[in-house]
Design a protein around this nucleic acid. Structure first.
Length: 635
RNA sequence: GCCGACGUAGCUCAAUGGAAGAGCAGCUGAUUUGUAAUCAGCAGGUUGGGGGUUCGAGUCCCUUCGUCGGCUCCA
């Protein structure tokens, strides 16, 4: 008798009856060293079990979608195993695979420090050497509870109790270690070839600050030492793009103890800022926006009316003027509401798109501050669109298109999220559902992939968020479109409809850059400090070879300035190589070397920061080239 | 805010509890230089702040501020 199985490459294979998963696995690993696991009908098979007839079998390598996760998940078990051996009384939390690695949460009797990671790594290596078979065990809820109660694992017990009624409860066992886990896993611990524990951090149990804080050990694992090293090298390389480092080196901005979370923008950074806002104004004008500016400090009554007093107070700064309470604005919306309400509106006036580069202050928790990415004072490229209910879809769609236009110019990849009603929310469930449905419909109609973020909306409405990644792959929210049926009520906003009656407009709040500060940080990291010419603080630098050519170099410099370019001249008493090195480090796009030859031929020798020596050409040609690059915003 | 770590010259980093140093940057001078670092000299510090232990503290302890990595939160 024989059985038929279908392999994931479409092949059908015939095996003698009684062939086990492990037999199949061994046969396949003979010609595929990186093979990690065998899945039968989408589930990991118990290795000793015979293959069922007519099953479909998937061979999982490290580079398949599940592969890395299985591999790193097993690595996290090896970590937990090692920790349990070294600290028998440690309580286990959870230990999943994550992008590029894994972590495991523990409650230690005495907190460990990062020095202890080395000892733990050593113990992990032992466990790998032991090649412990990893076995799956399914059990009843009662058995599982008894097992983990006996082993004194309160967090595991809590998890089991909260598993759904019909859940299959499985554990994975390797030697003297056992963990509650859905799996799947590698066949044995010896397969975890190359790993490294990378950091130690605190993490609240189940992510809630009301729960105890556990210690989380982060690590990463790869199938070979080379790939691990390659990854670690990449991380090192990525750190060179860190905007905090480049911001200092390129004199873009600075941060000071005197104002934690309140960044200082220097001239170079400010040039970039100005160019970003110029571009922004031009596109908003084109898209039919008006632009306003509202005060930083406004009376308490306004914040009570807007709901911020009740919903956002802990994040706000306060002051008092003439014995009255005032607040520094944490958002621009109430100001925009007052502007709208300042006159009567006809339905013919709508949509009214009111933009504002608004500076807001928020008292963020000290531990969350992060360079320019997360600050306490930032400028939002805000806009509020006041519209008729039936204009919502097209306006949201218009904003999404604008979002894509801006991000494309910078060459950003982005991820979209839809966030729904939070716990602390204003308004009825019906209103929320209606608003959420509209946003969802636009995303679906535009065929945009998005992730649902339950309960993550603003207190006044659901939102679509746009996320960008920093140099280390951490994701930051930039653009957001927030639908709001609340503010119009709170501020009693109206328009006169076709029927001559007063009606309620709908409002969307939206930002595209998000905050200028965060955008700057992301751009710095995205370009590694080498800004495209249209944004570069200095676009061209003139490098005279000797002081014989200073006069000619000075003329070149003046002509470039007159052409509207941002240009410097390096007349220091240094060698050409030295000046070029410095210009390269400053990441100036164009270097013009002028010596006796150029004076003679009335030309410039052009060097590009990436392409190197481009040879000589006339200044006019060079200016045309640079201007074209600026006009086209070439990356 | 919470957990862990770290704060020494503008920057990157040294210094068993026993005389605060180096490289780069800066300044001065020499050198007139051709596509990523010319040479020499000079100057640069209440070792984040405050308190304590000690004959003696950059080093050990407490406290405070800031920064970093996370958690939570969020543009």
């Amino acid at each position: 008798m024989s059985i038929k199985v279908k392999l994931d490459n479409g092949e059908e294979a015939v095996y003698p009856e009684g062939t086990t998963c492990y037999d199949l696995y061994r046969e396949k690993t003979a010609d595929n060293k990186e093979l990690l696991a065998v899945l039968v009908d989408g589930k990991e098979c118990d290795l000793g079990q015979p293959l069922p007839d007519k099953s479909s079998v998937a061979l999982v390598g490290f580079d398949t979608p599940q592969g890395a996760d299985i591999y790193r998940h097993s690595a996290s078990h090896v970590l937990a195993h090692a920790v349990k051996r070294l600290y028998p009384n440690v309580k286990l939390g959870i230990g999943p695979a994550i992008e590029n690695g894994f972590y495991y949460d523990f409650e230690f009797e005495e907190p460990i420090s990062s020095d202890d990671l080395k000892t733990i790594e050593k113990e992990m290596k032992k466990i790998v050497k032991e090649r412990n078979q990893i076995r799956r065990r399914e059990m009843s809820r009662k058995e599982a509870l008894e097992l983990f109660e006996e082993r004194d694992e309160p967090y595991k017990v809590e998890m089991i109790k909260e598993l759904p009624e019909d859940a299959v409860i499985s554990c994975y066992e390797q030697n003297d270690f056992i963990d509650l886990c859905a799996g799947p896993h590698l066949p044995h611990t010896g397969m975890v070839k190359a790993f490294k524990l990378t950091s130690l951090a605190g993490a609240y149990w189940r992510g809630s600050e009301h729960n105890p804080m556990l210690q989380r050990i982060y690590g990463t694992a790869f199938p070979t030492k080379e790939r691990l090293q390659h990854y670690l090298d990449m991380l090192e390389e990525a750190k060179k793009r860190d905007h905090r480092k480049l911001g200092r080196e390129l004199e873009l901005f600075s941060l000071h103890e005197e104002g934690p979370g309140f960044p200082f923008l220097h001239n170079n950074g400010n040039v970039i800022w100005q160019k970003l806002t110029d571009f922004w104004r031009e596109e908003h004008r084109r898209a039919g926006y008006e632009e306003i500016k509202t005060p930083l400090i406004l009376n308490r009554t306004l914040w009570e009316q807007s709901g911020h007093w009740d919903h956002f107070r802990e994040d706000m700064y306060f002051t008092s003027i003439d014995e009255q309470d005032y607040a520094v604005k944490p958002m621009n919306c109430p100001g925009a509401m007052l502007v709208y309400r300042n006159k009567m509106h006809s339905y013919r006036d709508l949509p009214r798109r009111i933009a504002e580069m608004g500076i807001v202050h928020r008292h963020e928790l000290s531990g969350t501050l992060h360079g320019l990415m997360r600050v306490r004072s930032f400028t939002q490229d805000d806009a509020h669109i006041f519209m008729l209910p039936d204009q919502v879809e097209s306006e949201v769609a218009g904003v999404i298109e604008m979002m894509d236009l801006f991000y494309s110019v910078f060459g950003f990849d982005y991820r979209v999220e839809l966030s729904t009603r939070p716990e602390k929310a204003m308004g009825t469930a019906e209103m929320w559902d209606k608003a959420t449905d509209i946003l969802e419909k636009v995303l679906v109609d535009k065929n945009i992939d998005y992730r649902l973020n339950e309960g993550d909306g603003a207190f006044y409405g659901p939102k679509i968020d746009f996320h960008l990644e920093d140099c280390l792959g951490r994701s930051w929210q930039c653009g957001t479109i927030q639908l709001d049926f609340q503010m119009p009520e709170k501020f009693d906003l109206t328009y006169i409809g076709e029927d001559g009656d007063k009606h309620r407009p709908v409002v969307i709040h939206r930002v595209i850059y998000g905050s200028m500060e965060r955008l700057m940080a992301l751009l710095i990291e995205h370009y590694g400090g080498a800004f495209p010419t249209w944004l570069a603080p200095v676009q061209v630098t003139v490098i005279p070879v000797t002081d014989r050519s200073h006069e000619y170099a000075g003329e070149i410099y003046e002509q470039l300035r007159n052409a509207g370019l941002r240009v410097t001249i390096d007349q220091r008493n240094e060698k050409v190589g030295y000046k070029i090195r410095e210009a390269q480090l400053k990441k100036i796009p164009y270097m013009l070397v002028v010596g006796d030859k150029e004076v003679e031929s009335v030309q410039v020798a052009v060097r590009h920061r990436v392409e190197g020596d481009l040879g000589t050409e006339s200044l006019e040609t060079l200016i045309d080239r640079v201007k074209k690059e600026i006009r086209e915003k070439s990356i």
